[in-house]
Design a protein around this nucleic acid. Structure first.
Lengths: 220, 220
DNA sequence: TAATTTTGTTAGATGAATCTAATTTTGTAG
DNA sequence: CTACAAAATTAGATTCATCTAACAAAATTA
């Protein structure tokens, strides 16, 4: 059995690997807000447990066992988020913090019950895929809004950042998953975009925002 | 903010105080499965935080602040149990262990939402009172079945033990809260009782069982 | 390629929560 | 009232997860 702390390292390493291919000590260190020496020693510990491959000065990689355990934690996190939104009526901006705590609950039946009540959902409220019971996930290949060109239309499908601040910002602009947004113009200097969607004819979004929005490019 | 460990000491001290008046180091030690020296040092720590009164060789007592914080943890535990039973459909024998973990969740809105969904319940599935938001509880003065005399009728209102094993035993005999049970005979040697209730004309219960069942004595 | 910066590791310390062994205090039974 | 037993405390060790400081390796820049 892994400690709560170990679970957080596994989960973060898993997510970081999927975000950016190679993960270094410093990346984990920054994401977890933990100093590098601490990360190094935890990696050695997880290597002893056959959860990560660790070689000095090499990128960090989860073993298959590590991926499975990380996937299961992420499954619990995302099921919880979905439960909080669909069953308990929370807003999508409120659930990340709570799920961060509940994901460590040791009770398979608790999460099975959630899954059942939710009708075995495939995505969480932020559009991220929910791993299956073996921790396996299919990551969809979405486009970032920030990579779109003028004239492109993107159907929003997921956010990269589930923080309360970011989601409150999206709420304030009535930006939701499922919306089709059209790129009206892009400022070459800093990437600021003007987009239209729903009733909004022109809404300006910074690069910081557009690079956190994912979706499917529409043909039209 | 108290650690999860500190919360467990506070909660257990609170419950033990209500069960048995005076609580000694050894009682807490046994209940928590933690050796006495560890308990002593934690009591000193909690005394520094003004959560317990601690004097060497004296019984342990919570301060008002300690009672409030313990009460709030117990509130979260019992609301969670009720939620698991009423909203998620768990059996009353399954919820204690899960609630033991969820009670440490730091999210007032999570528990407020539960409370609201449940319609502000006053009792948990085991008949124990749910403390209010300030941690205050009214403990009802129930009678133990083991204290009843032949001919008495007791309306079951609560169990003293929420363990899965005990509750599964009750399930197997179809013993539920709300039932009226009548004492048909008591074995003077070991206190074994024969009772009748519902369709059961004579069910034999050991003292171990009868002292864990509480209820209101009926007039008739 | 040499110098500098960035990244990573080693060594050693700290605080929390636990333990065991030894000692002391309190309570109880002759 | 002494002796023994039970309960509690003190002292010191251990494990986990963290840190800082110092050093080493790798990557980058000049």
């Amino acid at each position: 059995m892994n400690s709560l702390t170990e679970e957080n390292y596994l989960k973060t390493l898993f997510i970081l690997s999927n975000e950016t291919g190679e993960v270094n000590v410093i990346d984990l260190s920054k994401r977890l807000n933990i100093k590098m020496p601490t990360v190094t020693s935890m990696m050695k510990k997880l290597a002893d447990k056959k959860l990560v491959y660790y070689e000095s000065y090499k990128p960090l990689r989860l073993t298959e066992k590590g991926k499975k355990e990380a996937g299961i934690i992420i499954r619990k996190h995302r099921l919880t988020e979905m439960f909080l939104v669909k069953v308990m009526g929370f807003g999508w901006e409120e659930v990340h913090e709570i799920a961060e705590q509940l994901e460590h609950t040791r009770s398979p039946s608790f999460f099975e019950k959630m899954d059942e009540m939710l009708g075995y959902p495939k995505l969480d409220p932020h559009g991220s895929p929910i791993p299956d019971k073996n921790g396996k996930v299919e990551w969809k290949k979405y486009s970032k809004l920030s990579d779109c060109k003028t004239g492109d239309t993107l159907k929003l499908a997921a956010v990269i950042d589930s923080s309360e601040e970011f989601l409150k910002f999206l709420n304030s602009r009535e930006l939701k998953l499922g919306l089709k947004v059209k790129v009206k113009s892009i400022e070459p200097f800093d990437g600021t975009m003007v987009i239209s969607y729903g009733k909004k004819q022109s809404e300006t979004l910074s690069h910081t925002v557009t690079e956190r929005l994912l979706g499917e490019l529409m043909d039209i």
